[in-house]
Nucleic acid binder design. Structure first.
Ligand SMILES: [Mn+2]
Ligand SMILES: [Mn+2]
Ligand SMILES: [Zn+2]
Ligand SMILES: [Zn+2]
Lengths: 146, 146
DNA sequence: ACAAAAATGCAAATCGTTTGCAAGTTAAGC
DNA sequence: GCTTAACTTGCAAACGATTTGCATTTTTGT
């Protein structure tokens, strides 16, 4: 989604391009990881924006396909801009919480199997991974014999 | 997880096998789909059990690996018994809400790619699918030429 | 600039889930 | 079977993320 297109995309869906929306969109496009509504709210610097407005706008942006909602088993959801129609998943370190993108998606390969097994037509999926990031890898030391 | 083993599994974790736990476990093992805390609560027939107790027990069972928590983008989480250490995913119909198990898991194949791309060691993942079930498939009619 | 449509701030409401505490139940050893 | 410590429960209150009603402000299309 090119920066210029957002206004048109919004207009097509009868949504206005407001100050809050522009700023939220900018924050999301600049972030290297998905952000929570509260994180976004705290990064809003210009004109004051209510947290409820952040929630309303995230939902609006999600509804028209500009933003993706992500569940990483936290108390809240995270949101990220969908750039160039990209499809990504995430992996979160179970030790330090670091989050990275995973561009591989092997689920398409699964769709046929699912179709045969259950008769469902696959439309969408969530795949979130959890593991241990390079910095948190347990150091391999020689066994100390108890 | 054989029915007899649950008591031992609980004991190993310093948990008691209470009336509520036994009944919740029974309900989960009988259900063909993951249930919400409220659904479980409503299915409890014997001695009265508080909803808070259902939540506490679901968490306890999850913590010791007897139960899996599932997020299907609803307002609540669902829970299912982990039988025989099985690893399953789910697919939910976007039209009627029907939920079925997906036994295929292609994520393992992805682990190597993730390891190479991000250096993360994969420990766990969530994969939930959304689509259209056989009953809800749009009927293919001949094009009417507008 | 103008009227209509959409969005916002603010405060209150929602709602799934959690928690403190006193009372009840279970586990384990005798 | 008792006895006690550990664990669990009911109940009501608290929590925290998210949503909503409504009066007011901003944005849009002409
Ligand atoms: Mn995918
Ligand atoms: Mn899997
Ligand atoms: Zn880490
Ligand atoms: Zn269906």
């Amino acid at each position: 989604m090119a920066a210029m297109d957002i206004a048109n995309h919004l207009r097509r869906h009868k949504k206005s391009l407001t100050r809050a929306r522009a700023e939220i969109w900018h924050i999301l496009t600049q972030s290297e990881k998905p952000l929570s509504p509260d994180e976004i709210h705290r990064r809003l610097t210009g004109h004051k924006v209510d947290l409820a407005t952040v929630y309303r706008n995230l939902r609006a942006l999600k509804d028209i396909g500009l933003v993706r909602e992500i569940d990483l088993r936290e108390a809240f959801k995270r949101y990220e801009a969908i750039l160039a129609g990209q499809h990504v998943h995430h992996i979160m370190c179970q030790v330090c919480g670091r989050i990275e993108k995973v561009r591989h998606c092997v689920v398409q390969d699964m769709a046929n199997a699912i179709q045969k097994e259950s008769g469902f037509t696959l439309k969408d999926h969530s795949l979130e991974c959890f593991g241990i990031c390079p910095s948190c890898q347990p150091h391999k030391t020689k066994a100390q014999g108890t």
